[in-house]
Protein backbone atom coordinates (compact mmCIF):
# COMPACT_ATOMS: atom_id res chain seq x y z
CA UNK A 1 0.00 0.00 0.00
CA UNK A 2 1.25 3.46 -0.86
CA UNK A 3 1.14 5.99 1.95
CA UNK A 4 2.03 8.84 -0.41
CA UNK A 5 1.12 9.15 -4.06
CA UNK A 6 2.26 12.17 -6.01
CA UNK A 7 0.72 12.66 -9.45
CA UNK A 8 1.98 15.08 -12.12
CA UNK A 9 3.39 17.50 -9.53
CA UNK A 10 4.43 20.83 -11.00
CA UNK A 11 5.77 23.77 -9.06
CA UNK A 12 7.72 26.85 -10.04
CA UNK A 13 8.92 30.06 -8.43
CA UNK A 14 9.53 31.59 -11.89
CA UNK A 15 8.26 30.82 -15.42
CA UNK A 16 10.51 27.78 -15.56
CA UNK A 17 9.07 24.91 -13.56
CA UNK A 18 11.37 23.64 -10.81
CA UNK A 19 9.40 20.49 -10.18
CA UNK A 20 7.91 19.45 -13.52
CA UNK A 21 5.26 16.79 -13.96
CA UNK A 22 6.69 14.53 -11.27
CA UNK A 23 4.87 11.30 -10.47
CA UNK A 24 6.00 8.87 -7.79
CA UNK A 25 4.70 6.86 -4.89
CA UNK A 26 6.03 5.89 -1.49
CA UNK A 27 5.02 2.47 -0.08
CA UNK A 28 4.02 2.55 3.59
CA UNK A 29 6.90 1.52 5.85
CA UNK A 30 9.61 2.09 3.26
CA UNK A 31 12.80 4.13 3.48
CA UNK A 32 13.09 6.47 0.50
CA UNK A 33 16.00 8.71 -0.43
CA UNK A 34 15.50 11.84 -2.52
CA UNK A 35 18.74 12.73 -4.27
CA UNK A 36 19.83 15.06 -7.04
CA UNK A 37 22.12 17.99 -7.79
CA UNK A 38 21.86 21.37 -6.06
CA UNK A 39 18.98 23.53 -7.21
CA UNK A 40 17.02 20.67 -8.70
CA UNK A 41 14.13 21.17 -6.30
CA UNK A 42 14.70 18.61 -3.53
CA UNK A 43 13.80 20.96 -0.71
CA UNK A 44 10.92 22.33 -2.77
CA UNK A 45 9.65 18.79 -3.12
CA UNK A 46 9.95 18.34 0.65
CA UNK A 47 7.94 21.53 1.12
CA UNK A 48 5.30 20.20 -1.24
CA UNK A 49 5.17 16.88 0.62
CA UNK A 50 4.79 18.69 3.96
CA UNK A 51 2.16 21.02 2.42
CA UNK A 52 4.15 24.17 3.24
CA UNK A 53 3.93 24.81 -0.52
CA UNK A 54 1.00 24.20 -2.83
CA UNK A 55 1.72 22.64 -6.23
CA UNK A 56 0.58 24.66 -9.26
CA UNK A 57 -0.81 21.49 -10.73
CA UNK A 58 -0.91 17.84 -9.86
CA UNK A 59 -1.83 16.30 -6.54
CA UNK A 60 -0.42 14.57 -3.49
CA UNK A 61 -2.53 11.84 -1.95
CA UNK A 62 -1.63 11.13 1.67
CA UNK A 63 -3.19 8.02 3.19
CA UNK A 64 -5.92 8.06 0.55
CA UNK A 65 -6.84 11.73 0.95
CA UNK A 66 -5.68 14.87 -0.86
CA UNK A 67 -2.97 16.57 1.24
CA UNK A 68 -4.67 19.97 0.90
CA UNK A 69 -7.73 18.62 2.70
CA UNK A 70 -5.69 18.05 5.90
CA UNK A 71 -5.77 20.76 8.56
CA UNK A 72 -2.45 21.87 10.07
CA UNK A 73 -3.22 19.84 13.18
CA UNK A 74 -4.25 16.72 11.26
CA UNK A 75 -1.21 16.87 9.02
CA UNK A 76 1.04 17.13 12.07
CA UNK A 77 -0.33 13.76 13.19
CA UNK A 78 0.74 12.19 9.88
CA UNK A 79 4.02 13.83 8.94
CA UNK A 80 6.90 15.07 11.09
CA UNK A 81 9.50 17.23 9.36
CA UNK A 82 13.17 17.53 10.28
CA UNK A 83 14.79 20.48 8.57
CA UNK A 84 18.46 21.31 8.69
CA UNK A 85 19.63 21.83 12.25
CA UNK A 86 20.21 25.35 13.55
CA UNK A 87 20.81 27.14 16.83
CA UNK A 88 17.63 28.88 17.95
CA UNK A 89 17.99 32.41 19.34
CA UNK A 90 16.87 31.62 22.89
CA UNK A 91 18.44 29.14 25.28
CA UNK A 92 15.92 26.30 25.22
CA UNK A 93 17.10 22.98 26.63
CA UNK A 94 17.03 19.66 24.78
CA UNK A 95 14.02 18.32 26.69
CA UNK A 96 12.11 21.60 26.28
CA UNK A 97 12.75 21.45 22.54
CA UNK A 98 11.57 17.87 22.21
CA UNK A 99 8.46 18.60 24.28
CA UNK A 100 7.46 21.32 21.80
CA UNK A 101 6.28 18.55 19.51
CA UNK A 102 3.56 17.84 22.09
CA UNK A 103 2.26 21.45 22.18
CA UNK A 104 -1.06 20.61 20.45
CA UNK A 105 -1.71 17.98 23.14
CA UNK A 106 -0.98 20.14 26.21
CA UNK A 107 -3.69 20.54 28.84
CA UNK A 108 -5.80 23.68 29.17
CA UNK A 109 -3.26 25.49 31.32
CA UNK A 110 -0.68 24.99 28.59
CA UNK A 111 1.31 22.31 30.41
CA UNK A 112 2.45 18.88 29.23
CA UNK A 113 0.65 15.83 30.57
CA UNK A 114 2.55 12.85 32.08
CA UNK A 115 1.97 11.07 28.74
CA UNK A 116 3.64 13.91 26.85
CA UNK A 117 6.63 13.73 29.18
CA UNK A 118 6.93 9.98 28.74
CA UNK A 119 6.78 10.30 24.95
CA UNK A 120 9.49 12.98 25.00
CA UNK A 121 11.75 10.98 27.30
CA UNK A 122 11.32 7.91 25.09
CA UNK A 123 12.24 9.97 22.02
CA UNK A 124 15.40 11.11 23.82
CA UNK A 125 16.26 7.50 24.63
CA UNK A 126 15.60 6.34 21.06
CA UNK A 127 17.95 8.99 19.70
CA UNK A 128 20.53 8.28 22.39
CA UNK A 129 20.58 11.78 23.88
CA UNK A 130 18.85 11.19 27.23
CA UNK A 131 21.96 12.37 29.08
CA UNK A 132 21.81 15.72 27.26
CA UNK A 133 18.23 16.48 28.35
CA UNK A 134 19.09 19.55 30.43
CA UNK A 135 21.73 21.01 28.11
CA UNK A 136 21.00 24.05 25.98
CA UNK A 137 20.94 23.61 22.20
CA UNK A 138 23.79 26.08 21.76
CA UNK A 139 26.03 24.00 24.05
CA UNK A 140 25.90 20.71 22.15
CA UNK A 141 27.49 19.65 18.85
CA UNK A 142 25.83 19.82 15.45
CA UNK A 143 25.39 16.04 15.36
CA UNK A 144 23.74 16.06 18.76
CA UNK A 145 21.50 18.94 17.71
CA UNK A 146 20.45 16.99 14.62
CA UNK A 147 19.45 14.16 16.96
CA UNK A 148 17.42 16.59 19.07
CA UNK A 149 15.44 17.66 16.02
CA UNK A 150 14.93 14.03 15.04
CA UNK A 151 13.82 13.26 18.61
CA UNK A 152 11.35 16.12 18.39
CA UNK A 153 9.97 14.66 15.16
CA UNK A 154 9.68 11.22 16.84
CA UNK A 155 7.79 12.81 19.74
CA UNK A 156 5.19 13.90 17.22
CA UNK A 157 4.30 10.18 16.91
CA UNK A 158 3.67 10.27 13.17
CA UNK A 159 3.77 7.38 10.70
CA UNK A 160 5.90 9.47 8.31
CA UNK A 161 9.28 11.15 8.88
CA UNK A 162 10.45 13.71 6.36
CA UNK A 163 14.09 14.82 6.64
CA UNK A 164 16.12 17.44 4.79
CA UNK A 165 19.77 16.36 4.57
CA UNK A 166 19.96 14.89 8.06
CA UNK A 167 23.65 14.07 7.75
CA UNK A 168 25.09 17.22 6.20
CA UNK A 169 27.93 18.70 8.30
CA UNK A 170 28.26 15.50 10.33
CA UNK A 171 31.40 13.44 10.64
CA UNK A 172 31.52 9.82 9.42
CA UNK A 173 30.55 8.21 12.69
CA UNK A 174 27.61 10.56 13.21
CA UNK A 175 26.43 10.07 9.61
CA UNK A 176 26.25 6.35 10.15
CA UNK A 177 24.58 6.76 13.54
CA UNK A 178 21.83 8.91 12.02
CA UNK A 179 21.21 6.38 9.24
CA UNK A 180 21.16 3.52 11.76
CA UNK A 181 18.66 5.47 13.82
CA UNK A 182 16.40 6.12 10.84
CA UNK A 183 16.58 2.48 9.80
CA UNK A 184 15.74 1.42 13.36
CA UNK A 185 12.68 3.68 13.27
CA UNK A 186 11.65 2.09 10.00
CA UNK A 187 12.02 -1.44 11.33
CA UNK A 188 10.89 -1.08 14.95
CA UNK A 189 8.26 1.62 14.65
CA UNK A 190 7.14 0.79 11.10
CA UNK A 191 7.67 4.39 10.08
CA UNK A 192 7.90 5.59 6.53
CA UNK A 193 11.14 7.55 6.22
CA UNK A 194 11.79 10.00 3.40
CA UNK A 195 15.18 11.70 3.46
CA UNK A 196 16.81 14.18 1.14
CA UNK A 197 20.46 13.33 0.86
CA UNK A 198 23.63 14.01 -1.08
CA UNK A 199 25.28 10.88 0.20
CA UNK A 200 24.32 8.32 -2.45
CA UNK A 201 26.60 5.67 -0.95
CA UNK A 202 24.93 5.70 2.46
CA UNK A 203 21.53 5.92 0.78
CA UNK A 204 22.43 2.77 -1.19
CA UNK A 205 23.27 0.95 2.03
CA UNK A 206 20.13 1.93 3.92
CA UNK A 207 17.28 2.95 1.61
CA UNK A 208 14.71 0.78 -0.14
CA UNK A 209 13.96 3.18 -2.95
CA UNK A 210 15.56 6.21 -4.51
CA UNK A 211 14.02 9.19 -6.24
CA UNK A 212 16.84 10.81 -8.20
CA UNK A 213 15.80 14.24 -9.46
CA UNK A 214 17.48 15.57 -12.58
CA UNK A 215 17.57 18.99 -14.19
CA UNK A 216 15.03 19.21 -17.04
CA UNK A 217 14.24 15.51 -16.99
CA UNK A 218 11.69 13.26 -15.35
CA UNK A 219 14.10 11.88 -12.82
CA UNK A 220 14.84 8.25 -11.98
CA UNK A 221 13.12 5.92 -9.56
CA UNK A 222 13.88 2.45 -8.33
CA UNK A 223 16.15 0.55 -5.99
CA UNK A 224 19.49 2.24 -5.19
CA UNK A 225 21.49 -0.37 -7.10
CA UNK A 226 19.40 0.23 -10.23
CA UNK A 227 19.22 4.01 -10.08
CA UNK A 228 22.79 4.77 -9.03
CA UNK A 229 24.54 3.39 -12.08
CA UNK A 230 27.74 5.14 -13.13
CA UNK A 231 26.01 6.23 -16.29
CA UNK A 232 22.97 7.74 -14.59
CA UNK A 233 25.07 9.44 -11.91
CA UNK A 234 27.35 10.84 -14.59
CA UNK A 235 24.40 12.23 -16.51
CA UNK A 236 22.47 13.65 -13.56
CA UNK A 237 25.36 15.15 -11.58
CA UNK A 238 27.64 15.83 -14.61
CA UNK A 239 30.51 14.13 -12.86
CA UNK A 240 32.67 11.16 -13.60
CA UNK A 241 34.30 8.86 -11.12
CA UNK A 242 34.97 5.38 -9.95
CA UNK A 243 32.24 2.91 -9.17
CA UNK A 244 32.44 -0.48 -7.64
CA UNK A 245 30.66 -2.69 -5.17
CA UNK A 246 31.24 -3.20 -1.46
CA UNK A 247 29.59 -6.63 -1.13
CA UNK A 248 26.05 -6.52 -2.35
CA UNK A 249 25.72 -2.79 -2.80
CA UNK A 250 27.34 -0.41 -5.24
CA UNK A 251 29.33 2.65 -4.34
CA UNK A 252 30.48 5.65 -6.33
CA UNK A 253 33.48 7.89 -5.74
CA UNK A 254 33.40 11.16 -7.69
CA UNK A 255 36.73 12.20 -9.21
CA UNK A 256 37.55 15.66 -10.59
CA UNK A 257 40.24 16.29 -13.19
CA UNK A 258 42.99 16.99 -10.64
CA UNK A 259 42.18 13.94 -8.53
CA UNK A 260 45.06 11.42 -8.41
CA UNK A 261 43.03 8.58 -9.88
CA UNK A 262 41.26 10.68 -12.51
CA UNK A 263 41.20 9.14 -15.97
CA UNK A 264 39.60 11.03 -18.87
CA UNK A 265 36.81 9.07 -20.53
Amino acid sequence: MNIIEAKNLTFSYTDKPLVADLTFSVPAGSFVAIAGPNGVGKTTLLNLLSASLKPQSGSIILDGKGIQSFSTAMLARKIAVVRQEFIPPFGFSVIQTVLMARTPYYNRLGFETPDDKEIAVNALKATDIADLAERQLAQISGGERQRVFIARALAQKTPILLLDEPTSFLDLRHQVKIYDLLKKMQIEEKKTVIAITHDINLATQYCDNVLLLAQGARGYQGTPNDVFSTETIGKVYSVSGFSGAVRTQKFFLPLGQYARDYRPT
Binding site: S52, T72, A73, R83, F86, F92, M100, T103
Partner: peptide
Protein backbone atom coordinates in the same frame (compact mmCIF):
# COMPACT_ATOMS: atom_id res chain seq x y z
CA UNK B 1 7.86 28.65 22.57
CA UNK B 2 7.63 26.75 19.29
CA UNK B 3 7.30 29.91 17.19
CA UNK B 4 10.45 31.38 18.71
CA UNK B 5 12.33 28.52 17.00
CA UNK B 6 10.93 28.69 13.51
CA UNK B 7 7.61 29.30 11.86
CA UNK B 8 7.68 26.32 9.47
CA UNK B 9 8.69 23.97 12.28
CA UNK B 10 5.88 25.23 14.51
CA UNK B 11 3.40 24.71 11.71
CA UNK B 12 4.73 21.22 10.98
CA UNK B 13 4.15 20.40 14.66
CA UNK B 14 0.48 21.24 14.25
CA UNK B 15 0.44 24.77 15.64
CA UNK B 16 -1.83 27.32 14.02
Amino acid sequence: NALSFSEVDAKAMGIN
